[in-house]
């Protein structure tokens, strides 16, 4: 983590877009650090949550969208609950992740994005999430064949992981939802 925020280039529209999409007034942030102090993931982030807000205000779009912070945020809403000024920090993080995907920015935590995509693929196939298949496909795409192998076997033996998916019967309706989704984003 750098001690100072350096803003070599600035995108004038960025802050306004993030505010509108997250429905949050970022000018309310007084950098009390409640969000960063409460965040269970802050110590792994390259930019602390309140600094993300400041960098958004300064128009530092590329740096923010390329950060690991937006992908290590799991959306647990702790920051949003802690904020004394009702800035919806978790919603800000959501917006930044979606922008990073839409604008093809180099993703700082490709494994996290890949996991989300495997979950969405599973929903597209079955209408529900099939955990065993999500895990297998994730491990394959990461070329990570051995970690958690013993855990997986233990979960199978305890029947925590089902071999067969739980499915929605009307698969066409699920596919139609993916079409509907395009009109709702």
């Amino acid at each position: 983590m750098d001690a100072m925020i350096l803003a070599p280039e600035s995108n004038g529209k960025f802050a306004g877009m993030v505010e509108e999409m997250s429905r949050s007034n970022l000018s309310r942030c007084w950098h009390c650090l409640c969000c960063s102090g409460g965040c269970p993931f802050a110590q792994d982030m390259d930019i602390l949550p309140n600094r993300v807000i400041r960098m958004v205000q300064l128009g530092m779009k590329q740096q923010v969208l390329a950060s690991s912070a937006i992908w290590l945020c799991v959306g647990c809403n702790t920051c949003s609950m802690e904020c004394p000024n009702a800035v919806d920090m978790a919603a800000v993080m959501d917006v930044l992740r979606r922008m990073a995907v839409q604008e093809n920015v180099k993703i700082a935590e490709p494994g996290v994005l890949s996991f989300h995509q495997k979950v969405i693929d599973s929903i597209s196939r079955y209408g529900r999430t099939h955990k065993l298949e999500i895990m297998m496909r994730y491990k394959l795409s990461e070329k990570d064949f051995f970690s958690d192998m013993d855990l997986g076997l233990k979960m199978l033996s305890k029947r925590k992981l089902d071999l067969m998916p739980s499915k929605v019967k009307d698969r066409q309706q699920v596919q139609d939802l993916f079409k509907l989704a395009k009109d709702l984003s």
Binding site: R97, I120, I123, G127, V168, L180
Partner: peptide
């Protein structure tokens, strides 16, 4: 015949979905 609620994954990257 309920379906997945969307989970954190769709919420994270695809709000329309």
């Amino acid at each position: 015949d309920w379906n997945c609620c969307g989970s954190s994954s769709t919420h994270s990257i695809d709000p329309g979905l």
